[in-house]
Simulated assay, not measured.
Amino acid sequence: MKSLLLCFALTMSSFVFAQYNYDASEQLPFGKANPKAPEQIKDYQALIGLCECKSTTRKQDGTWNDPIDMIWRWKYIMNGMAIQDETLKADGTHSGSIRQFNTDSSKWYVHFFSSKGIPNTLPTWTGNKKDGKIILYKDQKAPNGTEGFFRLTFYDISKSGYKWIGEWVDKTETIVYPTWKIDCKRK
């Protein structure tokens, strides 16, 4: 009976560990894409890891604040089926996102959280990779009430780093007002 229980326990522990072959570990500090994940999981492949960044936001008067040093850390989560990123800023504000690709809608769903405030519901951006850029949208009115989006774009993505910009755009994307930009270099 003891040997049967031991055999069962070893089988179960092997099963449990096998479920997490793609999560972050000592051997894979940022995890690994699960081969069963949607092909689009590779959209973020070049961002996985650590980058040292400069984050710059726009002031109310339209000028830009001085850049803030920031670490942007990316890893695979949920056994390589999704992606999590986290920003650690020198000014003490931090944020992150959970990124999942929905095969039914063929879109990325990005749920954002921040240490600046805890909303009842996490804001969500949706979008895709197109022409080497990852572009995400969330409905947002301009201060004057004009319908539009807050658009997030990752671009100039390479092995050495990437750039990111947050912009308010009207529904036709002819009016573009940048409010936040980040420049990242691979660590």
Rank of each mutant, 00 (worst) to 15 (best):
M1H: 14
K2V: 11
L5P: 01
L6Y: 06
L6N: 11
C7S: 11
F15L: 14
V16L: 14
V16Y: 12
F17G: 02
F17V: 06
F17Y: 12
Q19K: 09
Q19L: 11
Y20A: 09
Y20D: 01
N21I: 01
N21K: 11
N21H: 08
D23T: 05
D23G: 04
D23C: 06
Q27M: 09
Q27N: 13
Q27S: 14
G31W: 11
G31C: 06
K32Y: 07
N34V: 11
P35N: 05
P38N: 07
P38F: 04
E39A: 13
I41P: 07
L47A: 03
C51M: 05
C51W: 03
C53V: 05
S55V: 04
S55Q: 00
T57G: 07
R58C: 06
Q60Y: 05
Q60S: 05
G62V: 12
T63R: 13
W64G: 02
D66W: 00
P67Q: 01
I68F: 01
M70I: 04
I71P: 02
W72Q: 13
R73I: 04
W74Y: 15
Y76H: 15
I77G: 11
I77R: 08
G80T: 04
M81S: 06
M81I: 00
A82G: 15
I83K: 07
I83M: 09
D85T: 09
E86M: 13
L88I: 14
L88V: 13
K89L: 10
K89G: 13
K89H: 05
K89F: 03
A90M: 12
G92F: 11
G92H: 11
T93H: 10
H94K: 05
I98M: 08
Q100R: 13
F101W: 10
T103Q: 14
D104L: 07
S105W: 01
S105V: 11
S106Y: 00
K107D: 10
H111S: 15
F112Y: 15
F113W: 13
N120F: 11
T121C: 05
T121P: 01
T124R: 13
D131P: 06
G132Q: 07
I134W: 08
I135Q: 10
K141D: 15
G145C: 04
G148E: 09
F149L: 07
F150Y: 12
R151N: 01
R151Q: 12
L152D: 12
Y155T: 02
Y155D: 06
D156P: 01
I157F: 05
I157W: 05
S160R: 07
G161C: 08
G161H: 05
Y162V: 00
Y162K: 00
W164T: 00
W164V: 01
W164P: 03
I165A: 09
G166D: 08
E167K: 10
D170Q: 04
T172I: 02
I175P: 03
Y177V: 14
P178M: 09
I182A: 05
D183T: 14
C184F: 10
K185M: 06
R186E: 00
K187A: 11
